[in-house]
């Protein structure tokens, strides 16, 4: 918040930190950068994350993966809904942070409301996408053959969208609704609302490490994310051709999936499917076809 010269007390300015494994560490590098408002006035300092912060965030996301993907789909839905509840309680603060960094009041309100609605929307999808994307497959042998979606693992999200908060929450919600954990690099120039969002996350029921948020330069962090063998997928904008190509190349080391962030279709359940592996199981069954049934 800009300092008002007429006020009688000095406001206590917030230190914007990272969110890794449910904790709020500063960057290990000790570096920071200044975040400006739309007019170029300094708003706050944010952490300029290093590759080691990224490494720590991926480690946290990996260790949270087993617990998160192992929860029942219904329970994940409850937790996403709870996230919507706590963001709703901080609605005014989030709106103010977006207006400080350059949104109009109407834009900011619309964006924060859309964020809350997105969380409720994907909370509902948590225990429903499986029915949409699963199949029982006809096979010519005496097997019960079925395919089900399973979460990929750790997902990297490069949230450099024109809407700094919604552009982060939409892909995040789709990723975690499907049982993935994620490491998000917030919007470089407008990261403050994202950090306040993590403070809401810390008071929701979301286990630490499921969502990790870094602030800093996408161009610095993306190559390390792309080469990291413990990251299973990356969501990023496909607009920058050279970054897209470099990421694709580096991703071959562990056959990472690179998904283009879609701005139009962000609420589709296919955004969940983008981050799922389809697992097919052949289950032997007694050949009881003469009795008139397949299984």
């Amino acid at each position: 918040m800009p300092i008002n010269k007429n006020q009688t007390r000095l406001s206590v300015l917030k230190t914007y930190k990272l969110y890794i494994g449910g904790q709020f560490p500063r960057t290990e590098s000790g570096r920071y950068y200044t975040v400006n408002d739309a007019d170029g006035n300094a708003l706050a300092n944010a952490c300029l994350s290093s590759r080691k912060d990224l490494r720590d965030a991926v480690t946290a996301a990996r260790s949270a993966f087993g617990g998160w993907s192992g929860k029942t789909a219904y329970n994940r839905g409850q937790i996403l809904y709870r996230m919507a509840e706590v963001v709703e309680a901080r609605r005014i603060e989030m709106i103010r942070e977006l207006t400080d960094s350059g949104s109009s009041t109407a834009q900011a309100k619309k964006e924060v409301d859309a964020c809350i609605d997105t969380l409720v929307h994907f909370a509902g999808w948590c225990d429903k996408y499986q029915q949409l994307f699963s199949a029982v497959n006809p096979v010519a042998s005496s097997h019960f053959n079925f395919s089900v979606p399973e979460p990929m693992g750790v997902v990297g999200i490069m949230a450099n969208n024109k809407q700094p908060l919604l552009g982060l929450i939409q892909p995040m919600a789709a990723a975690i609704a499907g049982g993935n954990t994620c490491v998000i690099v917030a919007h470089t120039d407008r990261p403050l609302a994202a950090i306040s969002f993590t403070e809401a996350l810390a008071t929701s029921d979301l286990p630490g490490g499921v969502v990790n948020i870094l602030t800093g330069k996408t161009s610095e962090l993306l190559p390390w994310m792309a080469g990291h063998l413990d990251v299973n997928a990356i969501l990023m904008s496909s607009k920058d051709n050279s970054a897209w190509k470099d990421t694709q190349l580096a991703a071959t080391a562990n056959l990472k999936r690179i998904v283009s962030l879609s701005e139009n279709d962000a609420l589709s359940p296919y955004r969940i499917l983008d981050l799922q592996e389809i697992k097919t199981t052949w289950h032997p069954i007694e050949n009881i076809a003469p009795a008139g049934s397949a299984y």
Partner: peptide
Amino acid sequence: TGQYQSAAY
């Protein structure tokens, strides 16, 4: 290799 590793390998 210069790449962060995964326990999966």
